[in-house]
């Protein structure tokens, strides 16, 4: 079995069936003359599903080792959390804390960094972003948000 292409097939089947089922059951598909909102998505979903199935069948027959080089879990988590943190805090905490938290999260992705260096990177980037985006480009944001009671 070819694990990589099994996973690829699974991804395509999930996306294709998900969008396809949603087009059929939640939308009007219509006809070629009067296409409903579901018509074009349904065609695309069928294409994706069929390709997923073809790749899957082929993968079942093949044998292929799959040892991908994957970024360390720590890096994955830190990088995905960083923008989410920004989204959660920019309204409540304000721009400065949000940028600092985001940078801090991203900077901790690399292993073996001294905490002091991580702090220095965070401080430097936060100050830089404040200068560029707030003072330089006039981004309309609150620097310190309402959650601090100011």
């Amino acid at each position: 079995m070819d694990i990589k292409n099994m996973a690829a097939s699974g991804t395509l089947l999930a996306v294709g069936l998900g969008f396809g089922i949603s087009s059929v059951f939640t939308m009007d598909v219509g006809s070629a003359l009067r296409m409903g909102p579901g018509y074009f998505p349904l065609i695309l979903s069928i294409v994706i599903t069929v390709i997923g199935a073809v790749i899957g069948v082929k993968a079942l027959r093949d044998t292929e080792a799959f040892r991908p080089q994957i970024a360390p879990l720590r890096a994955l988590a830190a990088l995905i959390v960083a923008p989410i943190l920004f989204g959660l805090t920019v309204r409540g905490f304000g721009f400065i804390p949000a940028v600092a938290l985001t940078t801090l999260s991203a900077a901790s992705a690399a292993k073996g960094q001294k905490p002091l260096i991580v702090m220095a990177i965070t401080l430097g980037i936060t100050v830089f972003c404040l200068g560029v985006f707030y003072y330089g480009l006039g981004l309309p944001v609150r620097l310190i948000g309402p959650w601090f009671g100011v």
Binding site: L79, A82, P83, I84, F86, G87, L88, V90, R91, V99, T102, T103, A106, A107, A109, A110, Q113, I117, I121, T122, G124, I125, T126, F128, C129, F133, L139, P140
Partner: peptide, 26 residues
């Protein structure tokens, strides 16, 4: 190690500032 946190901070600010919509960050 200095570069990528900066890229991520810029990207987050940039994406947010399109519509001031936090959902876009998710």
């Amino acid at each position: 190690t200095v570069l990528f946190p900066a890229i991520l901070a810029f990207a987050s600010i940039g994406v947010y500032s399109v519509n001031s919509n936090t959902f876009d960050l998710y």
